[in-house]
């Protein structure tokens, strides 16, 4: 990984072929080559948020804990909503299930909200040093995953306290994360590169995320939607992801395999497309930033 002593670098004005990036193995190899850098940037991303505060990383635990407490209060005392998954569902369970859905959605919204400004806000990495900019969205994703894991810990503690059991299906979690990761990564690459050229993207993404929050079955079960609209809602890949999160953690069910397979395949394509798009536009970043 250290410097090669005889390497010929050709910096040419000729446009590059897009297809050299459009290979999953090439992508993985490129990202793997920068794993040290990626690790450092992820740590920076995670630690940097609370850097300088007295409680530091503890905030990553406290924030979701407070959120969970508020949800529990609101939905067990104020509103009387149910998921209808089990007849004996308690108010506390409703709050925990909502929290579970939010864990999935927050990874998505954290990545996408950050993506459009990601390159623009680090001009030094664009202009001053040769830097693999493609790892920046990855480090944001890494940080979002770390935060979602701490939230998961809180959720599991809540389950142990109120329900006194964690379903065994929770071991499916890594599989359930897979399409989520793919979607976040692909869209982040896409938005991060586009955001360099069109600054409006940042505001647009904020609005779209708001809409998406309600168009995804997060605060309601998908079964609460009229049958006609269910399919439409299902076409939103996030719906399946959120549903699967609830199935494996809250309801002790395996993921909905056909949908899981379809969404995972789709997110794989999104990842590749986002990566190729990013690498293609990357050369022009320094002109605009």
């Amino acid at each position: 990984m250290s410097a090669k002593s005889s390497s010929l670098t050709v910096i040419s004005s000729r446009p590059e072929s897009v297809w050299q990036y459009a290979h999953p193995l090439a992508m993985v190899r490129n990202l793997w080559a920068h794993r040290d850098l990626l690790q450092q940037f992820t740590v920076r991303e995670v630690m940097g948020r609370y850097k300088g505060s007295y409680l530091g990383f503890l905030w990553s635990l406290l924030t979701p804990l407070f959120m969970l407490m508020v949800y529990t209060f609101v939905f067990s005392v104020v509103f009387k909503a149910t998921w209808g998954a089990s007849p004996s569902e308690s108010r506390v369970e409703f709050a925990l299930t909502l929290f579970c859905s939010l864990i999935a959605f927050n990874v998505f919204s954290e990545c996408l909200a950050r993506a459009p400004g990601l390159i623009v806000s680090s001009p030094n990495y664009v202009k001053k040093v040769v830097f693999p900019l493609e790892i920046l969205p990855l480090s944001v994703l890494g940080s979002a995953l770390v935060h979602s894991l701490t939230s998961l810990v809180i959720l599991f503690l809540g389950l142990l306290v109120f329900v006194r059991a964690i379903p065994w299906t929770a071991i499916y979690l890594p599989l359930v994360y897979l399409p989520l990761v793919g979607l976040c990564l692909g869209l982040s690459w896409f938005l991060a590169s586009l955001g360099v050229f069109i600054r409006d993207i940042g505001y647009l993404v904020g609005v779209v995320l708001q809409v998406l929050f309600f168009m995804t079955p997060i605060i309601y079960p998908i079964s609460a939607v009229p049958a006609v609209l269910q399919l439409a809602l299902r076409l939103n890949p996030l719906s399946s992801v959120v549903e699967d999160f609830r199935r494996v953690i809250m309801w002790g069910q395996a993921p909905d395999w056909p949908w899981w397979g379809a969404v995972t395949l789709f997110s794989g394509l999104v990842t590749m497309a986002g990566y190729v798009w990013f690498m293609k536009l990357k050369r022009a970043f320094a002109d605009v930033v």
Partner: peptide, 15 residues
Amino acid sequence: GTLTPTTGEVRVNGR
């Protein structure tokens, strides 16, 4: 290597 030229090319032999 941080800026792409519009025309021509640069060859750098080394780091």
